[in-house]
């Protein structure tokens, strides 16, 4: 049952998500700068940015309603709730009973819904563009995402995240199979779209014609912007930990002891840095795609997941 140690695990998990999220963002920027032969900002720059925003006053549009003020907080809460369900350093999440991978997807959808709603609140065309594009990309992502979830669930027989990472890590290297890799590539493409990276969205742009996420949050400033930025970074961390701990859960702690947890944390950071490097490599080597070419990209992901399911049935037989 729920004990003091599980409460400790939960609180530690929340602290890790909030504390590591800006670091991951900084590291991706640094790795990207390395690929582009630049020096790049310090990996702690996102922390400085958030601290700076926290100290600033905000300017709010005269047209907004309570939705605009509530949206960042609701998104923040939804993302952190999703964070309670995803194994990061320990595979047996005490609150894992509260929801599975599908619930995580819907919590992320809740966060997105309110961000997009707030984008319309100020009555600016930029916000509308951003919200519309965000929901458009989400509509393409969702079927591909659900099919890749099914591909994963087919392999281990569950959508419970703790169960998946325990099952895969106990299988050892035998888990690496054609369908495992196909499902991973499918989910990696989705992760690009979910975290708003090139070729789907450019996190560094402020050009009106191309931005998606930045257009939605254009009206935010000060502390609210700090929460919005932090939420986006947390979401990125969660998507990365999904990739890491569903497909490569090796090294994750299976029980509570200090050494195991410390090791698991180090392994986790190495895993997400490798994934981040992959992401930075993609960002450096491709240009942003036109919005209406994106269905091609995401249908590639959809097909890969479908192939994963079909190949599982072929390999494993009936």
């Amino acid at each position: 049952m729920f004990t003091l140690s599980s409460l400790g695990i939960v609180i530690f998990q929340v602290i890790i998500i909030v504390a590591l999220a800006p670091l991951l963002s900084g590291m991706i920027k640094k790795i990207k700068a390395f690929f582009q032969i630049r020096k790049g900002p310090s990996i702690f720059q996102p922390y400085y940015d958030i601290a700076k925003l926290m100290r600033k006053d905000s300017v709010v549009s005269e047209n907004v309603s309570w939705i605009f003020h509530a949206a960042p907080l609701i998104s923040f809460a939804a993302i952190l709730t999703a964070g309670l369900l995803i194994p990061i350093y320990i595979s047996d999440m005490p609150l894992g009973f509260a929801g599975d991978l599908i619930a995580v997807v819907y919590l992320l959808a809740l966060a997105r819904f309110f961000t997009a709603l707030a984008s319309l609140d100020a009555g600016s065309s930029f916000g509308g563009m951003g919200g519309s594009r965000e929901m458009f990309v989400a509509s393409m992502v969702e079927p591909a995402l659900m099919l890749s979830i099914f591909a994963i669930a087919l392999n281990v027989g569950s959508t419970n995240l703790s169960f998946i990472s325990q099952a895969v890590s106990s299988m050892g290297l035998a888990a690496v199979s054609p369908y495992h890799i196909l499902a991973f590539v499918a989910l990696f493409i989705i992760a690009i779209a979910e975290t708003g990276r090139i070729p789907v969205d450019n996190p560094a742009t402020h050009l009106e014609l191309t931005m998606i996420h930045e257009a939605m949050i254009l009206e935010y400033s000060g502390k609210q912007l700090a929460i919005v930025e932090l939420t986006a970074m947390m979401k990125q961390l969660l998507v990365f930990s999904l990739l890491a701990n569903i497909f490569f859960p090796w090294g994750i702690a299976s029980e509570i002891n200090a050494a195991g947890i410390a090791l698991a944390l180090v392994v986790f950071i190495i895993k997400i840095v490798i994934l981040g490097a992959g992401m930075a490599l993609v960002e450096t080597s491709t240009a942003k795609w036109r919005l209406f070419r994106l269905p091609d990209l995401l249908s590639v992901s959809l097909m890969l997941s479908f192939l994963a399911i079909v190949s599982f049935i072929i390999v494993r037989g009936v």
Binding site: T81, L95, F97, A98, G99, D100, I102, A103, L107, A153, V156, G157, S158, T159, N160, S162, F163
Partner: peptide
């Protein structure tokens, strides 16, 4: 029934 899949709406 299988795979420890559960969802608790009130907890969420």
């Amino acid at each position: 029934p299988a795979g420890q899949i559960s969802m608790s709406a009130p907890s969420l």
